[in-house]
Design a protein around this nucleic acid. Structure first.
Lengths: 141, 141
DNA sequence: TATTGTTATACTCTATAACTATA
DNA sequence: TATAGTTATAGAGTATAACAATA
C-alpha cells in the first residue's frame, strides 16, 4: 500500500543527496556554499531578479535570503539595485566579478557532474524527465 | 548537450524541495526537524544502529550526528548503549517514548503525504522507481 | 596505529516576528 | 493597509580538526 510510495520517495531523496554529495566538492573549490551557488546559477545569464523572485526560484525564505545575499555581496559577487519605478523593490544581479565566477564555476561544476552520469543515455534522461514532470505535477500546490 | 542533464537535475531537486516543503508542517507538529525525523524513521522497527551506521544511512557526518542525537536524547526519544564486545561502538535505539512517537508520527506523516499524490497511480510509481534506480546506479560511488 | 564517537570552533542556514520604507 | 526587504533572535545543521577511549 504505502511501500511503493515510500520506496519512490526514498529513492528520490537518495539521488538528490548523492548528487549534492558529489557536487559539493566542486562547488566548494569556488568558496561557495550550495545556497550561494544556487543564487549565482539562478542569476547567471539574466538581467537579475528581485529578492522576492529569487526567493521563489530557490525556495529560500526572505529572512534567510538577506543573509545569503549579504555574504555574496561582501565577496563582491552580486549587487543590489533599487528599482526606480517601485522603490520597495531591489534588483539583485551579478557584478563583473560574479559573472566571471558564474562563467567559470557553472560549466566546471556541470561538466564534472556530467562525467559522473556515465551509464545515462539521452533516452534515459528523457524517460526520467517524463516521470519527474508527472510527479511534480501531482504534488504541486 | 548539457540542457537535458540540467533539466533532469533541476526537476529532481524541485520534487524533493516540494516534497520537503509539504512534509515539513506535518513533521513539525511532533516538534521534530527533518534531520530528527530522519533519525527516528531510520531507527523505527529496528534493533538500533551504531552512530557510524546511522551516519551512513542518513548522510549526516559524525560531528553533526552527535548534536542531532544529543537533542533527541534530551527529549528522551533515543538512548545510547555502549556495545559490550567492542566498547568503541555505541548503539542508538529508540526509547519507549521514541517508539511511541515513531508509531504515531511516521504513519501520520506518510498518510498525509500520500494524500497529496492524488494523480499518481501504481504504474506511475513503478515507472518513476525504475528510472530512479537507474539514476542511482549511474551516480553511485 | 587505526577506529568510534565526542568536543570545540566558527560559520551558515532556518523560522519567526518586528521593523522600515515605500506604495 | 499592504508589500518588499531588513534586522534581530534563537536554534539547528555543517565542516573541520583535535581529542579520548578502545581496539
Amino acid at each position: 500500500m504505502s511501500e511503493r510510495y515510500l520506496r519512490s520517495i526514498r529513492l528520490l531523496v537518495e539521488c538528490v543527496q548523492q548528487f549534492e554529495k558529489l557536487s559539493d566538492p566542486y562547488i566548494r573549490q569556488f568558496d561557495l556554499t550550495q545556497a550561494q551557488f544556487d543564487i549565482i546559477a539562478t542569476l547567471g545569464n539574466t538581467q537579475g531578479f528581485s529578492c522576492k523572485e529569487l526567493g521563489e526560484k530557490t525556495l529560500i525564505t526572505k529572512g534567510t535570503l538577506t543573509g545569503v545575499l549579504d555574504r555574496l555581496q561582501s565577496k563582491h559577487l552580486i549587487e543590489r539595485v533599487q528599482c526606480k519605478e517601485d522603490r520597495r523593490l531591489h534588483y539583485i544581479r551579478l557584478t563583473k566579478k560574479g559573472e566571471k565566477l558564474f562563467e567559470e564555476a557553472f560549466p566546471y561544476v556541470i561538466q564534472n557532474m556530467k562525467a559522473r552520469f556515465k551509464g545515462f543515455t539521452k533516452d534515459d534522461f528523457a524517460a526520467l524527465e517524463e516521470q519527474l514532470i508527472r510527479l511534480r505535477e501531482a504534488i504541486s500546490d
